[in-house]
Simulated assay, not measured.
Amino acid sequence: MLRQVFSNVAANGLAVEAVDLVKDFGDTRAVNGVSLAVPTGSIYGLLGPNGAGKTTTLRILIGIIDPSSGMRRVLGRENPIDAAPEVGYLPEERGLYPSMHARDAIGFMGALRGLPIAEGRKRADELLAQHGLGEWGRKSIRSLSKGMAQTVQLLGSIVHRPKLIVLDEPFSGLDAINQGRLEEMIRTEARNGATVLFSTHVIAHAERLCERIAIIAKGAVAFDGSVAEARDRLRPIVRLRTRASDGPWRSAIPASARREGDEYVFELPEGGPEPLLKALIDGGAGIETLAIERPGLHDAFVAIAGNQTAAEMGAQERPQ
């Protein structure tokens, strides 16, 4: 039955597919029935707190470990190892030889994926120059900052021009400048036709980069869809400031409205903004300001995954 389901979802246009992945480590279930469909050419994020099962899921998808049950397909191959030459992988645990020069480290990582070492070094020079980092090529890894070394390792993950790029917590420990550089590299690879699949516990990165996300909590997928679809689970928020303190217009505001300073804050009523505006004007509210805000991904995450999971994410986002 599972193979029947898998063959049905294995349509053109998907770089990564998974159906009911389960992974047990002894008595601990790290992945609990994860199903994913990652469109080719997309930037797709696995979003969830540390310990949610994101890393284990990624490792199953690219064949580092096998699932206890379930099926996966990577770039059309049911055995992910067959797709390895076309996959770039940046693990959460970083590892470069400290004595290597940056260009040699990038070339060496390309050689591990079948790229001739001379071609890898040439492409390393091109990649470093492309991103304004040409002077890094002759520097040893031990002389680079953590952010610089992480950038070198990312370039080593893409030097063989993979069709699929898998990044496990790529922003971890980076300052704002290096985070911005990494985000732009991800966008560049997607524009060049690669599919990017990355995990993160920082909601802002997923909101800025991703076309589609999967929210993972306690080893299971709580949501899989576009960022817009996640936001659309919540109604827009109205922020209203009026000159009048009371009057017939008050009936237009939901009883659940709260006060934040001089503003009333409430969900946009089902009828939309036009009936609300008419009721406020006809009722003599004396509108000073009225703003309608679309809920952010953080609000959607709380609604989908729950306050406790969101609190765990928030704690993990703060610098240690």
Rank of each mutant, 00 (worst) to 15 (best):
Q4Y: 06
V5A: 11
L14S: 15
A15Q: 10
A15N: 09
V19Y: 11
V22A: 11
K23R: 11
D24P: 03
D24I: 07
D27K: 15
D27W: 08
V31Q: 10
A37V: 09
V38F: 11
N50W: 03
T55F: 07
M71G: 09
R77Q: 14
E78R: 14
P80S: 13
R103H: 11
D104M: 03
A105S: 14
A105K: 07
I106P: 04
G110K: 09
R113L: 09
R123I: 11
E126F: 01
A129M: 08
A129R: 15
Q130R: 15
H131L: 15
E135R: 11
E135V: 08
S140D: 00
I141T: 03
S143I: 00
S143P: 01
P162E: 10
P162D: 10
L164I: 15
I165Q: 10
E169G: 07
I177H: 06
Q179W: 00
L182F: 13
N192T: 07
G193K: 14
T195S: 14
F198A: 12
T200S: 15
A204G: 02
A206I: 01
R212E: 13
I213A: 05
A228I: 03
L234A: 09
P236K: 01
D246S: 13
G247L: 05
W249T: 01
R250K: 13
A255G: 05
A257P: 00
Y264C: 00
G271R: 04
P275C: 04
I281R: 08
T289F: 04
R294N: 02
H298F: 04
D299N: 04
A305D: 09
